[in-house]
Design a binder for these strands. Structure first.
Length: 296
DNA sequence: TGACAGGAAAATA
DNA sequence: TATTTTCCTGTC
């Protein structure tokens, strides 16, 4: 049993930041709501986060984390004023979309975990993806205790490599199962650490080489975990948005290329703003609830 | 309870 | 090279 650590509650001052939007805009899946708190496993720790106006409150369980690690994780180092200014200059009539999603940040997540998350996301709704990832973590991740609940870290590659086919069947992955089995045998955290040092095209090519990863998932991994803010994943919502706002339609590849061309180096932020905007306005599902509306 | 949501790969044109 | 078909699970 590892030694458990809990920090005192700390807080840091934030500007143009919405914790809720950032965590609920589809870039990350393993988030747990406890009242006003969000509990998020990260690295070898569990973070408890909450926000009041321009204060972000956090405590850490498991292993200690520096303030800098937390800021990087939540995209708090991004120059959001520069990004928003540049995006509204590049695309006409996009200010309303930016205004709507204001506070969203692109997170910097672990690429190994993010790759598995988006492999699981193929042809799946968010609640289904969450269920699979949480079950996988309970099966192979280390426990971290908090006051009222036990959480599980995302499993390491060495643990997943030892998992039996029978155990993996419990995830109900369907046609994704053979991609996952191949992935955990062939790849590990070190592969992604090395790949992260390369350029955009080389990263994208290596990701597309993984069975089960196409243009959309590759761009999700680049954007959410490989520090490539120009990546532009085109899912159904982005396709709807690009058609509605700019009359651009076509395959995922075509829409991704058009989005990167239109928005430039911060296209990923445009993508997240558009995703949030389209889902909030057009979704009939729970995403459009009171909670996610109009929060700072 | 059957329609529907959700991407990649293989097959086909 | 571009388009169509097939794959599977969970939800409402």
């Amino acid at each position: 049993m590892q030694e458990q650590y809990k920090s005192l509650q700390n807080s840091l001052t934030v500007k143009d930041f919405s914790l809720r939007k950032t965590l609920l805009c589809g870039q990350t899946f393993r988030i747990f709501e406890e009242g006003n708190d969000f509990v998020v496993p990260f690295k070898r720790s569990v973070l408890r986060l909450s926000q009041t106006d321009n204060k972000l409150h956090y405590s850490v369980y498991g292993e200690p984390l520096s303030e800098e690690e937390i800021k990087r994780f939540l995209g708090l180092n991004d120059d959001i004023e520069l990004i928003n200014r540049e995006l509204s200059e590049k695309a006409k009539n996009f200010s309303e979309v930016i205004q709507y999603g204001k506070g969203l940040r692109i997170m910097r997540q672990n690429p190994y975990e993010t790759t598995i998350s988006f492999l699981f996301s193929i042809q799946s709704s968010i609640p289904v993806i969450k269920k699979r990832l949480n079950l996988l973590s309970e099966m192979g991740g280390e426990k971290v205790e908090t006051e009222n609940k036990t959480y599980y870290l995302f499993p390491e590659s060495k643990v997943l490599k030892r998992m039996s086919k029978k155990e993996i069947k419990r995830l109900h992955l369907g046609f994704r199962e053979e991609w996952f089995l191949e992935f955990i045998q062939k790849y590990d955290e070190a592969f992604f650490r090395n790949l992260s040092k390369k350029g955009f095209k080389e990263k994208e090519k290596a990701l597309l080489n993984i069975k089960g990863i196409g243009i959309k998932v590759a761009n999700c991994i680049l954007l959410f975990s490989m520090n490539e803010p120009s990546a532009f994943p085109a899912d159904v919502w982005i396709k709807r948005g690009m058609e509605k706002l700019f009359n651009i339609k076509g395959s995922s590849k075509k829409v991704t290329e058009a989005g990167r061309e239109l928005f430039g180096r911060f296209a990923g932020y445009a993508q997240e703003y558009m995703y949030y905007y389209m889902r909030s306005i057009y979704s009939t599902k729970s995403f459009t609830n009171k909670k996610s509306r109009g929060i700072p």
